[in-house]
Simulated assay, not measured.
Amino acid sequence: MPQISTKGQAMPESPIRKLVPFAEAAKKKGTHVYHLNIGQPDIKTPQVALDAIKNNTLEVLAYSPSEGTASYRSKIAENFNQKGIAVKPEEIIVTTGGSEALLFTMGSICDPGDEVIIPEPFYANYNGFATASGVTVVPVVSKIEDNFALPPIAEFEKLITSKTRAILICNPGNPTGYLYSAEEIAELAAMVKKYDLFLIADEVYREFTYDGRSHVSILERKDLDDHAIVVDSVSKRYSMCGARIGYMISRNKEVMTTALKFAQARLSPPTFAQIAGEAALETPQSYFDEVITEYVERRDLLIKELSEIDGVRVAVPQGAFYCIAELPVEDADDFAKWLLEDFNIDGETIMVAPAAGFYSTPGIGSNQVRIAYVLKKEDLSKAVNILKEGLKKYNG
């Protein structure tokens, strides 16, 4: 039989999606599943974006430029400039989701065997993107007892080798909800300049910050012009996950010239979705104000109710819409399957994402789960009660 590639065998399963067959089987039995496992917002997509697709007069659905349409890139740049962050259209490449922006970034700055240091836990697909690019992820552990704050810079420095090409952060963090402070960004900036590395920031969740805190973009620092690469997406910001539109931004001309070659190889990002993405930039601030108010209320309810379950420890998110909860179980993977296969309350159960897949270090996170609070408050409360009663029975 022909052989599968070593790279293909090494590609990790998604901890977010690998339990889908168990959820589908539960649904076939008539069980209602509350999905806490995936960051698919239930917030409505801005009407202005949907109307742009419905009302367009295109007669030919043609290729767009490989870097994205000029009008969309100009609008993105204008949006950043309005926030006081100087960005030019030529410093932007539109991609098929933030995922492709990360692939272009790794392809542009890393050779096979090169290393990228990432604070863990991190977005699970970073492992997949790295494997696909022949890049080695080098994790630096952040801890639940520290609320997943930036590890000490000395811990990063211990890991830097001749193969290190970049530090990658997600800010605010998926799966932790941690929001890096200006001081932490300054520490990272000093380090990447000292060792002549790139600093990649996944800023997909930058609108979602809580408790009076503000997001600090690495693009705000002019001293990082040669080092900073931002990955962004419309998926979470406008509840447009299915549009598959993202972009990468860098003031480093060599990086963008190189990334454009990858963009040309895949021809162009989707035309209709760019139309929707461009229109979404007209979304009023009131939309975000309402969304953030809703997420804060959900977060507060979730953290309160999780904290009241015996043996559960939870980190308090400061942004995004995820949290990591440590459970009184040895194997969260087994527990998550059990919830779907063998447990329900009045015909209802929950699906969570086992957190081990968000770590690169073997053995860490095996008793943790990621919970996405993308359900209305009433359903979140029911879901936490199912978790509570499920833990009692599982451990009993």
Score class of each variant (00 low, 15 high):
Arg237Thr: 15
Glu59Gly: 12
Asp42Cys: 07
Tyr195Gln: 07
Arg299Asn: 05
Gly242Thr: 12
Asn81Met: 09
Ala353Val: 04
Ile169Gln: 00
Lys27Asn: 04
Asp202Thr: 08
Val230Asn: 01
Asn55Leu: 14
Ser5Ile: 04
Leu391Asn: 05
Gly97Tyr: 07
Gln368Met: 15
Met240Phe: 14
Ile53Gln: 02
Gln368Glu: 14
Glu348Trp: 02
Lys388Gly: 07
Phe288Asp: 13
Asp223Val: 03
Gly134Arg: 07
Ala130Asn: 05
Ile53Pro: 05
Gly134Trp: 04
Ile371Met: 13
Glu330Leu: 05
Gly128Ile: 06
Pro46Ile: 00
Pro172Leu: 01
Cys241Asn: 10
Asn385Ile: 09
Glu145Ser: 13
Ser66Val: 07
Cys323Pro: 03
Lys304Arg: 13
Lys376Gly: 08
Asp342Tyr: 12
Glu91Phe: 05
Gln274Thr: 01
Arg251Val: 00
Arg237Lys: 14
Leu267Glu: 07
Gly8Ile: 02
Leu302Thr: 15
Ser181Trp: 03
His35Ser: 09
Thr95Phe: 11
Leu58Met: 12
Gly277Cys: 10
Arg313Glu: 09
Asp146Leu: 01
Glu207Asn: 14
Ile92Thr: 08
Ala259Cys: 08
Phe321Tyr: 15
Asp114Val: 04
Leu267Lys: 12
Pro151His: 03
Arg266Ala: 07
Gly396Ile: 09
Lys88Ser: 12
Asp114Pro: 09
Leu387Ala: 05
Asp51Arg: 00
Lys392Ala: 10
Ser286Ile: 12
Tyr63Ser: 13
Leu19Val: 04
Asp289Pro: 02
Leu219Asn: 01
Asp331Met: 02
Gly246Arg: 00
Leu103Gln: 10
Val230Met: 10
Gly242Trp: 13
Ser5Glu: 09
Ile249Pro: 03
Val316Ser: 01
Ile309Ser: 01
Lys377Met: 08
Ala315Met: 05
Met1Thr: 10
Ile364Glu: 13
Ala70Trp: 10
Cys323Asn: 14
Asp232Val: 00
Glu203Ser: 11
Thr6Cys: 02
Arg221Thr: 03
Ile160Phe: 08
Gly311Ala: 11
Arg165Glu: 13
Leu260Gln: 10
Lys337Tyr: 02
Thr161Gly: 09
Gln264Trp: 05
Tyr72Ser: 00
His227Gln: 14
Leu199Ala: 05
Asp225Ile: 02
Thr69Ser: 11
Lys194His: 09
Tyr287Met: 04
Tyr63Asn: 15
Ala77Val: 08
Pro172Trp: 01
Ala124Gln: 14
Arg221Asp: 15
Gly365Trp: 04
Gly363Tyr: 10
Val329Trp: 06
Pro121Gly: 02
Leu267Phe: 12
Ile85Lys: 00
Tyr123Gly: 01
Leu103Arg: 11
Glu254Ile: 08
Pro284Phe: 00
Pro270Tyr: 10
Arg266Phe: 02
Ala166Arg: 12
Glu326Asp: 11
Tyr180Gln: 08
Ala182Leu: 08
Glu91Asp: 14
Phe80Gln: 00
Ser366Gly: 06
Ser181Pro: 11
Asp111Ser: 13
Ile53Phe: 13
Met256Lys: 03
Asn55Gln: 11
Leu36Cys: 10
Ser268Thr: 13
Pro175Trp: 05
Val135Ala: 04
Lys222Ala: 13
Ala70Phe: 11
Lys222Val: 04
Glu348Lys: 14
Thr283Tyr: 05
Val20Phe: 11
Val138His: 04
Gly242Met: 06
Thr176Ser: 15
Ile200Asn: 01
His35Asp: 15
Pro151Ala: 01
